[in-house]
Design a protein around this nucleic acid. Structure first.
Lengths: 154, 154
DNA sequence: AAGAAATAGTCAGTGCCCTGACTATTCGGG
DNA sequence: CCCGAATAGTCAGGGCACTGACTATTTCTT
């Protein structure tokens, strides 16, 4: 009888929400380009020439995952990747023409899908909802580095 | 300039939320048993003897994924899996003693983690938040089968 | 200038998650 | 009773996501 009600567990609901998103994305946006892949393309539109790590930071992916995602985009010819002549550790990333074309096409569809996704909520509820998710995510993310600056009194 | 703001995209926020959850789960609940695995154990506490498909339905996983998750739990000795003598297609699932022990231990920790996860919100905001997630997920899930019952006038 | 620390990226390993194609079993209508 | 439809599960294939160990390059410190 010590069972937990999954519908009160935020983690479980978060997973369901993402699955719902996956479904909508596949049907309304694209079956070839995934949502994280689009996030990368989208980031490089406004900030061309970023390195891998920074792109990962922008879209919220660790360096292993971002390397995979970028690898796929490069091999599909949507992204160019060159060594930074200033810093031999980095790769500089840039959209190809095809990449720009794809980004433009998907941006429209993604926005449309987002409307459908949020359609069950009223205007007020939508902004509230997005705000709540961000607050919760930010707070949890903040727990990663347990704020040692305070105790740093050397 | 046609770039989308990721923070207004529910899909992107959903992914971030799940990553935040993953982080908390790993540090506060368990590194061995994952959240979906726990969901399976938890379900079988109240409904022992379910078959794979139904468990998948309860926790929100398709049959391929649930097969993997169950396979791991069986090989760790937390779950027993036997053919249904009534229906040779099914496997009946049941917690082992060890499985029950693990479920009890993690249920406490999962509840605690859930509190921490939701801590940034006030009491009212929490119930509101959980409700909003469910409404949005249910609505998207409902779009999967485009409601043909209405047209079914035979 | 040399060695240590930091940083960018890769790689191996594990697990979740989906789709689509396949097998085995059961069920239902003629 | 038998054959086709439905159902439970498996398997192959692709992609996301994390950790931890490793390499190469740069930077900081002495």
């Amino acid at each position: 009888m010590a069972a937990v009600d999954l519908n009160s567990q935020l983690g479980h609901l978060a997973r369901r929400l993402q699955q719902a998103h996956h479904l909508l994305w596949n049907t309304m946006v694209s079956e070839e380009i995934t949502s994280p892949q689009f996030a990368v393309l989208n980031t490089l539109v406004t900030e061309p020439g970023l390195d891998q790590r920074t792109v990962g930071e922008r879209v919220g992916l660790d360096r292993s995952t971002i390397a995979e995602v970028i690898g796929r985009l490069v091999s599909r010819g949507l992204l160019g990747k060159v060594r930074d002549p200033q810093d031999g550790r980095r790769f500089l990333l840039r959209l190809t023409e095809e990449g720009e074309r794809v980004q433009r096409k998907l941006a429209v569809r993604a926005a449309r899908m987002n409307q459908v996704f949020l359609a069950p909520l009223s205007g007020d509820e939508r902004t509230l909802f997005l705000g709540l998710i961000q607050r919760v995510s930010d707070a949890a993310e903040g727990l990663r580095n347990p704020a040692e600056p305070l105790a740093a009194q050397h």
